[in-house]
């Protein structure tokens, strides 16, 4: 509700502020209705306060309930109008992104466009600013919930269910979200970032991401390729190489991402090295296993990863 950055989020926020205003008003009125008689007709002790024997009047009960009813009908009608406005995209979606929830990271599959091929990335989405983007969500394991608070509400990501949702961003920026449905040990470390940018920059991002990885010609990184293919390729894909595992995130352009480990760690050389060699100590429960590497091998693998821009 705070700082909406899109039309649907703004519509929801306005609804939220109204609900808050009505709620405060109701609490205030009932609070006063409770306090006034306490101060007006108060007895000091039970012994000094004789029973009141006036005939009961239920008129104000009826009036109160009827007023409550009208308030509720108004609230309901308004919220249904808002639902109509926000449940489906408010225009032709610029593209459809497939989102797949995993324990504990997000996979994003971008479709082929006129200027770029289809590709898969993880945890960091880019979208063009000012247009709706359709999301097709699916789960690889348990239930997750996709949510970028400043862009729209949530959609649950349920195995066996194909849910659709949409987001849009009306100003450029980087928006944080995180899984909202409890999904096990590392539910807390399952963030996702959406970068909204101009159509031009978005197109060039698409083009860059859809290109296969460049194989490093020589040096430390080239030595890392071999070790990578031996071990990491079982679970990870690097397009343009023989690495085509599908258990972990696509690493074709991992170096272009700002974070790793489902948003838990900043993407820098130290964190990468720590993650590669002993992910479970950084994120207990992660499916990424400990990898036994000689220090020189580790340096080589990390150097290779750093070339994947």
């Amino acid at each position: 509700m705070m700082r909406p950055a899109s039309r649907p989020a703004h519509t929801l926020a306005v609804l939220g502020w109204w609900l808050l205003a009505i709620s405060l008003l109701v609490v205030l009125i009932i609070g006063l209705l409770e306090l006034i008689p306490i101060f007006r007709h108060r007895g000091s002790t039970l012994a000094d306060t004789p029973l009141v024997n006036t005939p009961p009047s239920t008129r104000w009960i009826i009036i109160g309930v009827v007023l409550t009813g009208f308030t509720l009908i108004g609230t309901f009608a308004y919220s249904m109008v808002v639902m109509g406005e926000t449940v489906s995209p408010d225009g032709q979606p610029a593209l459809t992104i497939e989102i797949v929830g995993h324990r504990w990271w997000w996979e994003a599959r971008y479709p082929r466009t006129r200027s770029s091929g289809s590709f898969t990335t993880a945890n960091e989405l880019h979208i063009p600013v000012g247009v709706p983007v359709r999301l097709q969500v699916a789960s690889a394991d348990v239930i997750h919930s996709f949510w970028i608070p400043r862009l729209h509400g949530k959609i649950d990501v349920i195995p066996g269910v194909r849910n659709q949702f949409w987001i849009r961003a009306d100003s450029a920026g980087r928006y944080r979200g995180q899984c909202a449905e409890y999904c096990g040990l590392q539910h807390s470390n399952m963030a996702v970032y959406v970068t909204a940018e101009s159509a031009d920059r978005f197109r060039s991002w698409l083009a860059a991401q859809s290109r296969p990885a460049v194989v490093p010609p020589d040096g430390e990184a080239a030595r890392g390729v071999h070790r990578f293919m031996e071990t990491c390729a079982l679970c990870h894909t690097v397009r343009g190489t023989e690495a085509s595992g599908v258990i972990g995130p696509d690493l074709t352009h991992v170096a272009s991402r700002a974070t790793i480990a489902g948003g838990e760690l900043t993407n820098n050389r130290g964190n990468l090295a720590g993650w590669v060699v002993n992910a479970p100590s950084l994120k207990p429960g992660t499916l990424m296993p400990r990898i036994d590497l000689e220090p020189s091998e580790l340096r080589a693998v990390v150097s290779y990863l750093e070339t994947l821009r």
Partner: peptide, 11 residues
């Protein structure tokens, strides 16, 4: 209020 619940559910 359904649509607002999309923003506050699970929070």
């Amino acid at each position: 209020a359904t649509p607002f619940d999309w923003t506050i559910t699970d929070t």
